[in-house]
Simulated assay, not measured.
Amino acid sequence: MSGWGGNLSDVVITSAGLQVRRAVAVMDQAQGGCGPVAEDPENGWLYWLVPPGSADRWAPRSHAVCLGAPHMITLPSLNRTAPPGPYWCRPSASDRLVPLGPLRKAPEQFRPEPAPHAALAARLGVSH
């Protein structure tokens, strides 16, 4: 497992429910293959890796949270593409990240539940 945080990327966290699979498909179309997205089955979340500094430009959303430094999450090794444990549902391809513009719209359109806000507030002490 490797860590995330700091200057490599920020992360948008959504539910990993069925509704968000449609958002992944939309991002696949927008990017010609979605940028890196890891699934954490234990928490029921998707971690969308977005450009560094995105958390500073992220307006509150009802179905997604964007975090940047100093927060840290644990990401799966790059070759892990299936459970058990966290895995890449869209593996990282070189230095490409998920673009923030289209990703802002997808969770609001598909409304993946449960929203991660309360669980993140309890775990990390953040409110977004």
Rank of each mutant, 00 (worst) to 15 (best):
P70G: 06
Q31E: 11
A25V: 14
S9M: 11
P70A: 15
V20L: 08
G5H: 07
C89S: 12
R104F: 08
A122E: 13
S77D: 15
P116G: 08
L18C: 04
P86D: 05
H128C: 00
M27V: 05
A82I: 00
R111D: 02
E39S: 15
A69E: 06
A106N: 05
A23M: 02
V37N: 04
W88N: 06
R61Y: 06
P114V: 09
L49Y: 08
L8H: 12
L103S: 03
A38Y: 00
V50E: 01
V98C: 14
D28L: 13
A118I: 10
W4I: 06
A55K: 07
L120I: 09
A122Q: 14
D95S: 11
G68N: 04
R21W: 09
L75V: 08
A64R: 02
P76T: 12
H128R: 09
V20S: 12
Q19I: 00
V65E: 01
L8M: 13
R22S: 10
A25S: 12
S94H: 14
R57S: 13
M72K: 04
R90E: 06
V98Q: 03
A64G: 07
L100E: 02
L75T: 07
A106W: 00
L124H: 12
L8Q: 14
V24S: 05
P107L: 07
A64S: 15
M27H: 04
R22A: 03
V65M: 01
G125F: 08
L103D: 00
S2L: 11
A59V: 00
